[in-house]
Design a protein around this nucleic acid. Structure first.
Lengths: 229, 229
DNA sequence: AACAATACCGAACATCTGTTAGAATTCGAC
DNA sequence: GTCGAATTCTAACAGATGTTCGGTATTGTT
């Protein structure tokens, strides 16, 4: 959050604390019930405050939900960057990427962030732009990891890295829709599975030309598939 | 829908038609505005009907939204199976899989199905169970394609096919959150990109052991990565 | 043309919605 | 402890919400 960037003003005023509490409570309610049925009065009740008092902290109901989204992106960013840092200074780009993806997945599962997409599209556009900007910054973390890997020659040629990144993150983000915490797989297992897919591929290299449509796919070795366009 | 399963009763009664119109209108509203702000009265107005009349066709507001979800799954299923059928009887499992994924993506983008996830979690559980069952049937299409490919030895060993399927579909479904129709890529391009990722992998095969954590990854050739556990 | 079933209307209901504004309380600095 | 500012409460508003129900129009069949 902003405080971590500027912690010199340690004056944690009371309004700051209840504002934070409201955001946290609202987030929880969004997760439990859908964003339908999450009303200003319910948020207030869950935060042990009166409904009218909320408007001392937020201009409107939509401002609350924007703050919730913001805290979600910032929270994910912090945990992902921390995970990257924990791989140490000698880590390879792929190690860092794996750490980042694992952190992203864990955060997504924990906060169960269906909330994120739920709202984005139909926010007042001023607020939406701001949120999209924050999302872009978050995505940039992964974009950097990928282009770093590319510079070191760790990636195959011919891929559109931004599409790769979106598909990667999408695969993990969507996990929140099917993942069963009671099941045998840990979130790290899922991340490893994805990394394995991205490493060797899922399909056997034998007769791949048939599975693609309009691309010219010819090769020297059995693996060197040249991807045109 | 059920009619396609049992078309002998061709009696398209008037109630059936307005019910269908209501579902279509509701779906459109869910897409345009969030599922917040989509009220019974707005659905009624958009369908040129009075609000009270809706309750002749649906028991409650949530029943409408369940019907919308149902029509979404069934619509996707129909288009995906049609796409599979169009690959012809001599197509390879990978060709069929590609066709299925492409159809899934196109449908997802067209209907912009954020709606799908938005609601699932907080439906009354009786309705939710029914919907989850429908989703399972839909997922089974892709599960079958994958296991068919596996039986023919087209897949690498060591992957959990259900996880692979979820990640695949998740990557594509999430596309609705970032895809820009004005951009240079067609939906088929995105599908091809994914297929390419699943074919050759994104990472170079050289030093993959470092990017994985607890897995023993050793091999005979440069590509034959044995994935333990 | 008559009739019964079907499909829709229209008004009313109780409740809930986001939001406002002034009064009442609590807080932090002196 | 006092005072002014920061924070919360209380009460009310105007309107929207899902749903019900008795009546009315429309439909398809004989």
């Amino acid at each position: 959050m902003l405080q971590s960037v500027e912690p010199d003003k340690a004056k944690l005023t009371k309004a700051d604390r209840t504002r934070a509490r409201l955001i946290e409570v609202a987030k929880r309610l969004y997760q439990e019930h859908g964003s339908d049925h999450v009303t200003v009065r319910r948020i207030a009740a869950a935060a042990k405050i009166e409904a009218g008092s909320i408007y001392y902290h937020f201009r409107s109901r939509e401002e609350i939900m924007r703050a919730v989204l913001e805290s979600g992106v910032y929270g994910a960013r912090d945990e992902v960057m921390q995970a990257i840092a924990e791989t140490g200074p000698d880590s390879s780009p792929l190690q860092r990427l794996r750490a980042a993806l694992a952190a992203h997945l864990k955060y997504t599962l924990r906060e169960h962030f269906s909330s994120r997409l739920r709202a984005i599209r139909r926010l007042p556009k001023r607020l939406r732009d701001r949120h999209m900007q924050q999302e872009r910054e978050y995505a940039a973390i992964f974009a950097n990891l990928l282009s770093e890997a590319e510079k070191r020659g760790l990636l195959r040629d011919g891929f559109d890295l931004s599409v790769v990144r979106m598909l990667m993150l999408g695969a993990l983000t969507w996990t929140a829709e099917w993942y069963d915490p009671e099941g045998p797989m840990t979130p790290d297992d899922v991340t490893d599975e994805l990394m394995a897919m991205l490493t060797t591929g899922v399909f056997r290299p034998a007769d791949q030309a048939g599975a693609r449509t309009s691309r010219s796919a010819l090769m020297s070795g059995p693996e060197a598939v040249v991807r045109g366009r």
